[in-house]
Simulated assay, not measured.
Amino acid sequence: MRNSSAPRLTDIAKRAGVSIAAVSIALNKSESNRVSAERRQKILRIAEEMGYVPNELARALAERRTRLLGLVVPLRDPIFFNQFIAQALSGIQSTLMKRGYNLLVFSPSGKPGRATRDQILESRFMDGLVFINTRSCTAGDVKRTIEELDRAQIKFAMINSYYGRAPINYVGVDDAAIGSAAVDYLTERGHKRIAFLSGSATLPAHQQLVKGMRRSLEKRGLELKPELIGCTGYEVERAFQILDDWFRTKRDRPTAILTADDQLLLNLYDYAEQRGLKMPGDIAVLNRGNSTPEHHLRPRPTTLVTPTLRMGELAAELLIDSIEKPGTPPQRVLLPFELVQGATT
């Protein structure tokens, strides 16, 4: 039952000596010039004095917006235990709290790497969708997701690992530049035989990292040997097999390894502990990772840090801007990465 003491628009209008329409515009449409600035301030002051609290549902219906965004993360593993997803989600939530939106998280289902058709259809009842590409997403998956969202005319922003040219709101990093920076850093320290430990050759980030590594190695007359590119499928047993192959003989072993993400770095640390390898004495290690969640590792890993929390913040900002300001052109933003020096190189 409605509290009889709660002020209504008619009460505010009567006290301010204006129409109900003027009160509604002043309270709900700050960008409108149909009410003068002076009158708007008077209405806002009276509304505050009277303790007016807006009815968010009524406002949403009037604006034809729900102020609800959806989040799709196509990953079969529990997403909140994943450091990358957790940090991106923290950034998204930070922006939504500032802009007055709520978030609905779709549970992973269907084919790994893809949103389901049901999720896409259900997202029509929201103002927009944030889609986070994961290690399950191939380049083909990402392309088809964009095409399906466009066909459904759903506003969306995408985070991570898209290297196509579609005009979408996207936030990520330049993985080719990270690959080049990794090689530059390692070769400057005398390393010539560099290995790359990755999850899957089908992942867009893998392909870009390899591209950047090869580019910098070729400038120095070196190469990224095919046998020194190891794809684990994110299986610990396979990671150990690859590393055993690399370290079987001293003559052919790599002197430095770039790991593609934090999970692979943990696999390498476990391997080094079991095999009695020292870092950087036996092998130098450089990681492409999030905002140093590896702080508990010893020795501290040297990391090329990707600003994952900021990715989430900015993607949500771009999406909300496109909702609130129709016609805003999409933006593709590549955020800078940072080298955080550790003790493994």
Rank of each mutant, 00 (worst) to 15 (best):
T292E: 13
D270E: 13
H295P: 01
F196R: 10
Q153Y: 04
R45D: 14
R59G: 06
G327A: 13
L69W: 04
S291I: 11
S180Q: 14
L297Q: 08
D77F: 00
G70E: 09
N102W: 07
Y269G: 01
V183M: 01
R59T: 12
T138Y: 02
H295A: 14
A182Q: 07
H296G: 04
D150Q: 15
S136C: 05
Q153I: 04
E63A: 15
S107H: 03
V130E: 00
R34M: 15
A256P: 11
A6Y: 05
L277C: 08
L286H: 12
R251W: 04
F156Q: 06
S123N: 02
D175N: 15
R59N: 12
K325R: 15
R310K: 15
L335D: 02
T292M: 12
M213H: 09
N82T: 06
V285P: 01
E122G: 02
L265Y: 06
Y170S: 02
P293F: 11
L297W: 04
N3Q: 11
T302E: 09
L265K: 02
G110H: 07
F131I: 13
E273D: 13
K155F: 03
A152M: 00
K155E: 04
I168D: 10
S19D: 07
N290A: 13
R165P: 01
K250F: 03
I168W: 10
S180W: 07
L217I: 09
D175M: 09
V18L: 02
I85Y: 13
G327S: 08
T302F: 01
L121V: 12
L222D: 10
R40T: 10
Q341Y: 03
L318P: 11
L304E: 06
E313W: 06
L309T: 14
G190T: 10
S200W: 06
L27D: 04
P7G: 07
V53E: 10
T328P: 03
G179C: 07
L217F: 03
A13W: 13
Q83L: 08
T138S: 03
L103F: 05
H296F: 15
G128W: 09
E227H: 14
